[in-house]
Write a protein that binds this DNA or RNA. Structure first.
Length: 260
DNA sequence: ATGGTAGCCCTGCTA
C-alpha cells in the first residue's frame, strides 16, 4: 500500500499536475492540503475517472484538505469535534477517513506567520488541540496515520540553514515540542524511519529567489504513523520532480510505502 | 534593508 501527502497550493491551479502525479505515482491514498476550494468546486469526478474515491473539506479561498483513495474511503469526519477548542474555528484544516484499514488524517497546520504574534500562539494552541483530539478519539494501537503540512521542521537538519531560521516560525522549541508530543503519544515520523541519518531532505521550497534550485528548502510535510502502521514502512521518497517544470506547487509530494 | 514568487480575490493579503 502506497500513501502520500501533498500541499498543492490551490487544487484549481494544480489539477493538471495532480492528475499527472496520479498517472505515474501509483499511490493508493493521497492526502491534499491547501486545495483553496469550496466543496462544490472540488473535482471529485476527475478523480473518480482516474479510479480514486475522494472526500474534501473546504471553505473556498483559503485552506482546504482532501483525501483520495483507491482502497476504499469510509467514515469521513472533519474538525476536532465539540469537545476540543479550535483556535482557527471555521478554517478547513483537518479531515479524516478510513482507507484500506487505516484511519487517515489529512492536516494543514496553521502557518504561525511570526513568533510573538497571536497567529503563532494560535498555531501552538491548534497543535495542542490536535493532540488532545487524537488522544480522545484514537489509541496508539489503532492503525492511524496523521499526514500533511505541519508547518514545523522537526530538527535543525530539516532546514537548509538553521542559522537563517533563528527567531523564525517552523523551528522554535515550542513548535518542535508540539510535534514531539505527538510522537510521545505514539506516532512515528515515517520518513525518518527510512532515512534516520540523512539531512537536507526537504519537501518545501519557497517560490522566491530560486530557492528550489539552490536547495534552500525545509522538511515540513510529515507522515506520522502509529506503531501498527510504522512497522509496515518499507520505503519513502520526496517526489522532487513534482516541484519542477511548469506550474509546480511550492511543496513536493511525500510518498511512503507500507508492506501489505 | 526586507527582497524574491505565486495564488487568491476588494490590485492587499496569505504563504
Amino acid at each position: 500500500m502506497r500513501i502520500a501527502t501533498w500541499n498543492v497550493n490551490s487544487l484549481k491551479a494544480r489539477l493538471p499536475r495532480v492528475e499527472e502525479f496520479l498517472g505515474y505515482a501509483e499511490v493508493d491514498v493521497l492526502c491534499l492540503q491547501e486545495t483553496k476550494l469550496a466543496d462544490t468546486a472540488f473535482p471529485a469526478l476527475t478523480f473518480s475517472a482516474l479510479g480514486y474515491d475522494s472526500v474534501h473539506y473546504g471553505q473556498g479561498q483559503w485552506n482546504g484538505v482532501a483525501i483520495l483513495s483507491r482502497v476504499g474511503i469510509e467514515d469521513p469526519s472533519h474538525g476536532f469535534g465539540d469537545a476540543h477548542v479550535d483556535p482557527y474555528e471555521g478554517d478547513a484544516r483537518i479531515l479524516a477517513a478510513t482507507c484500506g484499514g487505516i484511519r487517515v488524517v489529512s492536516v494543514y497546520v496553521p502557518n504561525g506567520r511570526e513568533v510573538g504574534t497571536e497567529f503563532y500562539d494560535r498555531k501552538l494552541h491548534w497543535l495542542g488541540s490536535m493532540h488532545d483530539w487524537i488522544d480522545a478519539t484514537h489509541k496508539p494501537t489503532d492503525p492511524l496515520v496523521v499526514m500533511g503540512d505541519f508547518n514545523v521542521a522537526p530538527e535543525d537538519r530539516d532546514v537548509w540553514d538553521p542559522k537563517k531560521f533563528i527567531g523564525s516560525t517552523h523551528v522554535t522549541e515550542a513548535e518542535r515540542k508540539a510535534v514531539a508530543r505527538l510522537e510521545e503519544w505514539g506516532l512515528e515520523d515515517a520518513f525518518r524511519r527510512v532515512y534516520p541519518d540523512s539531512d537536507r531532505l526537504f519537501s518545501y521550497w519557497d517560490y522566491r529567489a530560486g530557492d528550489f534550485h539552490q536547495h534552500r528548502g525545509m522538511r515540513i510535510d510529515l507522515v506520522l504513523a502509529s506503531p501498527p502502521v510504522a512497522e509496515r514502512v518499507t520505503w519513502a521518497v520526496v517526489d522532487r520532480n513534482a516541484r519542477k517544470g511548469t506550474g509546480p506547487s511550492d511543496h513536493a509530494p511525500v510518498i511512503i510505502d507500507l508492506r501489505d
